[in-house]
Amino acid sequence: MAVNEGDFIKLRFTGSYDDVVFDTTEEEKAREEGLYNEKKTYGPIIVRVGGNHIIPGLDEALQGKEVGESGTVEVPPEKGYGAHDESLLKSAPLKNFAQKPVVGTRISSEGQDGTVVNIIGKRAVIDFNHPLAGRTLTYEYTIDGIVEEPIEKVKGLIELYTGKNMDVELNEGILTIILPPGINYDQRWMMARGMLIHQTFEFIPEIMEIILKESYKRPAPVEEPVVEAEEPEAPVVEDAPVSEEQNE
């Protein structure tokens, strides 16, 4: 079966540049390359072909391929993370940093993420380009299958945008997403929620209504440990010495 634009698929991949691996869905590969993250779930991801869920160069390469097919594609900067923009190189005095920065330090400023790429005198040079901007990327990929069930598509979108596995229920077109306790304090969820809802309606026509359900259970009472009183030990009575008169 060929993959077409609009299909939800299960995809495995490893991305690299100049033989340096920067991302992978394979746990063993992540461990080999020193990229393993214990908070990340490894294995195939679910994406919609043509849905801007992966970079354009890889997305385009998947269209027309067969389920089960593996391949390699080179992605130029214009179909990856764009050209390197020199205007996004900024400098800042070292005194502006809470801790003295070094080359490679990641920072966030005015909603932009950047990397310190040089220290010149008392100033740090910060690159606000994406770390992979200007690079030609190589992706090795395998298409594991096409996803047909609406509920599996939803789960794929949730994990793609939030990095979390959430329980979902689908009944007569009404989708209920069971939110983990405290999720509203999660910045990634707050930023992704709107896009998740929008794409669920846009890409999964079987869903007519979405309910976000957050519930809490009363904590079980903490039982005080029962400490049994220890009985006092009987005094040890030593045998009294017997006199010679008593023996008579």
Rank of each mutant, 00 (worst) to 15 (best):
E5T: 07
E5L: 04
G6M: 04
D7A: 04
F8N: 05
Y17K: 01
D19S: 13
D23P: 00
K29Y: 01
A30Q: 05
R31S: 02
G34W: 09
L35H: 06
N37H: 07
K40Q: 10
Y42V: 00
I45E: 00
I46D: 00
V47N: 02
R48D: 05
R48N: 11
V49Y: 05
V49W: 02
D59W: 03
A61C: 00
A61Y: 06
Q63Y: 01
E66Y: 08
E66D: 12
G68S: 03
G71P: 04
G71M: 12
G71E: 04
V73I: 14
E78I: 12
E78N: 12
E78S: 10
K79G: 01
K79P: 02
G80F: 01
G82P: 00
A83E: 15
S91D: 12
N96Y: 14
A98W: 07
Q99V: 13
Q99W: 09
V102Q: 13
G104R: 02
R106T: 10
S108D: 07
S108N: 08
S109C: 04
G114H: 04
I119W: 09
R123G: 06
R123Y: 12
I126S: 01
F128R: 05
N129T: 11
P131G: 09
L132E: 11
L132F: 04
A133F: 10
G134Q: 10
R135M: 13
T136C: 05
T138Q: 11
Y139I: 10
E140H: 12
E140D: 06
Y141Q: 01
D144Q: 08
G145K: 01
V147C: 10
E148R: 15
I151F: 09
E152S: 14
K153H: 09
G156K: 11
Y161E: 15
K164S: 13
M166T: 03
V168S: 07
L170E: 05
E172I: 06
L175V: 08
T176S: 12
I178H: 14
P180Q: 11
P181C: 07
I183A: 07
Q187W: 10
R188N: 15
W189N: 04
M190N: 15
M191D: 15
G194N: 15
I197D: 14
Q199M: 11
P205G: 02
P205S: 13
I210P: 02
S215Y: 09
Y216S: 10
A220L: 15
P221Q: 14
V222F: 13
V222L: 14
E223S: 14
E228Q: 13
E230W: 08
E231L: 15
E231M: 12
S243T: 15
Q246S: 13
E248Y: 13
